[in-house]
Design a protein around this nucleic acid. Structure first.
Lengths: 214, 214
DNA sequence: CTGCTTGGATAGTGGCGCTATCCGAAGGAG
DNA sequence: CTCCTTCGGATAGCGCCACTATCCAAGCAG
């Protein structure tokens, strides 16, 4: 398969594919001679993943490169590999430690993890960008006078744990460890739009049920 | 409160506030004379909401303006107002109708709504950008060989319905109808980062439990 | 009056995801 | 062999967007 074929089968322009090659999102093809390179089904699969991350998941190109780097790093164990990939995804900006809403949010998030019994997350807390993102997001809500505390958040956490269990169950039904990590990353990134759309639909549905269309 | 005070209390630069005023995200202050305008607590509250939408929720400025316009439109009933605001939020791009993955996704989404008994959403389906976004997101997953069908999605839908019910319960504990719609929009937009962070934390936690840290 | 601050208008900046153009080499048609 | 298209790589540029820097005339304090 040559670059033009890869373009046709993926629906991505050759110019964009070249850009992804340049940016290291896609491994180079097997060079046949000075003007021809050969690509295979793996390239096509990777290209589709890249497109999905960038277009549907809105992951910036630089972050996608880093995430894929961790996914491909088979020197790491499964959990570490998944963790590294998830940590490379775009996160909220650094919290302003002087902000009292941030301090309050941190306390509530710590209590939340205790309530939920998420021991690994508690241990990782000081390092984890995901944990930090949660603190920032909760602080933003509290600044708008949402009295969000651990007790209010716990049910959401339990729901997300159930979602995560389904993700990993599905993941386990797939072949290689590398492919499994890839699936988990895709789950983390691409389920977002699905969950968001389901959430909004559910809001509309429930609002219509409670208050009618008026 | 003058512009400079508004800036100090919100932590947003005067240049950026002027930009928001120009873009119509913030109603103009009460003009005292040619060089002074007076702002009040409502302006501060609205500014904080705008900042949260844009920075935490990543809502583009143009979309935020439209959303806030619907929130402020008290000629509409509650459900319609919420619907209009949610529909103005950024959505996935138009689906490529020629793509077989899109057609398959549409079938599965329709079956999903039937399974869940979301009648209002089924009626609104041809019009709703939220519905369309769901189709696009599911199509993206199917293109990556996720065999996502209605039966697999239904539990996620049920979970999101539970989340939405909690949102609206919380919303009802608040005062005015305008404020309620504002809260629901904030819920739709700002819970996203919270759910995302909880989802990722849950994935890490469950992965560590199943496979250890290695 | 002097000198600083105010709010409004306008043009400019920086980052990012592409995209258009140019180039020399390769390969098929005649 | 020549002609002409097509190939892939390199480079510069484009369009969008969220700000941001600059300028200006009008006011206000001392």
């Amino acid at each position: 398969m040559r670059l033009a074929d890869l373009s046709k089968r993926s629906g991505v322009s050759t110019a964009t594919i070249k850009y992804y090659l340049r940016e290291g999102l896609l491994p180079p093809g097997r060079q046949i001679n000075a003007t021809t390179a050969e690509y295979d089904e793996d390239h096509l699969r990777r290209l589709r993943l890249v497109r999905a991350l960038i277009q549907v998941g809105k992951v910036p190109v630089a972050a996608a490169r880093e995430v894929l780097g961790h996914v491909d790093d088979d020197s790491l164990g499964r959990t570490v590999r998944l963790g590294a990939a998830l940590w490379a995804l775009p996160q909220e900006a650094e919290p302003d430690e002087a902000d009292p809403a941030v301090a309050a949010a941190r306390v509530e998030v710590d209590r939340l993890l205790e309530l939920l019994g998420w021991e690994t997350s508690r241990e990782m807390a000081p390092l984890s960008p995901v944990h930090r993102s949660l603190v920032v997001a909760v602080a933003a809500l509290r600044r708008l006078d949402y009295p969000w505390d651990a007790e209010l958040m716990a049910p959401y956490g339990a729901l997300m744990m159930e979602v995560a269990r389904r993700d990993l169950d599905f993941m386990e039904s797939h072949a290689s460890e590398a492919e499994q990590v890839e699936l988990a990353v895709a789950a983390a990134v691409l389920f977002q739009p699905v969950l968001r759309a389901l959430h909004r639909l559910a809001q509309e549905e429930e609002s219509a049920r409670r208050y009618g269309i008026e």
